[in-house]
Amino acid sequence: MKTGTDITKKLVFAVAVAVVLALPWMTGPYTTQLFILTMTYGMLGLSFAFTIRVGLPRFDSAAWWGVGAYTTAILMTKADMSFWLTLPIAGIVSMAVGFLIYRIAIPRGMMVFLMFGMVIALAIQQLFGSVEFFGGWGGTEVIEAPAIGGLVFDGKRELYYLGLGFLGFNLICYYALMRSRIGRSWNAIGQSVKLASSVGINVVRYRMANVLISNFFLALTGSFYMAFSLVAVPATFGLDKSLNVIMYVIIGGIAYSLLGPLVGALILAFVPEYMRVAAEYESIITAVVIILVVIFLPEGVLGWVSGRARPWLLRRRPWVRSVGSKNKEPESG
């Protein structure tokens, strides 16, 4: 039985990888762009799913995403820096500013963290818009596309693979982190703060580490965003975008911290685009779809899929899942 599953697993996995790699050749530039967007949204969702594992919901994902984008944009235009050099700087800026702010919020628990996030989301957007240095509401633009040697990332296919690189880096880091010793401590905190602190885990410090890592990756996503967007405008990084990020995670399935956000992002990148024909009714239809999904698939699309898949693919052993709780041990990684 074991070998059989192993082969199937490898085969299916290989097919999936092949499909992902071949996608930009199977579709046109517009669809490729939507996949690039999916990856961006997916990375944002990943960072939300990451902090949720220590019981902290972030409502400021888009703000730090913006911090990354603006850092890259400003360093590239004002300091004439190369795109690649701005990546670590963006991450560090986001972590440093985040550290100052979260020193206040994290020790005060989940609800304060949540509301603090909203204030940050609003404040950072206001900062970018009202302060001349950041280019005002019109935003800041970057002229040149990132390049390594002769390879310029200006076409959709190049950007798609650049995005895959970023996404892969995200996934590997998150996966490794969750498997490490620190990851187990995070899981413990996510399950019960009381229990975790009773076994000697410094909850505040571990949460801080988690949130700052998430900040780093958010900023990195922002830098990647600049690579294909070339323009940073404050309205792109508002509170509504942070709410969208939560939607990706919930729609995908909050218990699946690696694949869930990607699936959710895929759905929410494509559904509104296919609804474009509905013009002014598009946002209403998308909202109704979201309500229906949340009501009828409370564990997200992945939760539903794995529930369906059980009878014919996985019937040999009872599937043990955490049902309907965001803070219980998520099933993955």
Binding site: P57, M247, I284, A287, V294, G324
Partner: peptide
């Protein structure tokens, strides 16, 4: 949605707000 979590319910109100606003 309340049973399935805080965020699920929150998202539903976000979506409802969008519908009313539009």
């Amino acid at each position: 949605t309340t049973r399935s979590g805080f965020f699920n319910t929150m998202l539903v109100t976000v979506a409802f707000g969008t519908i009313v606003a539009q």
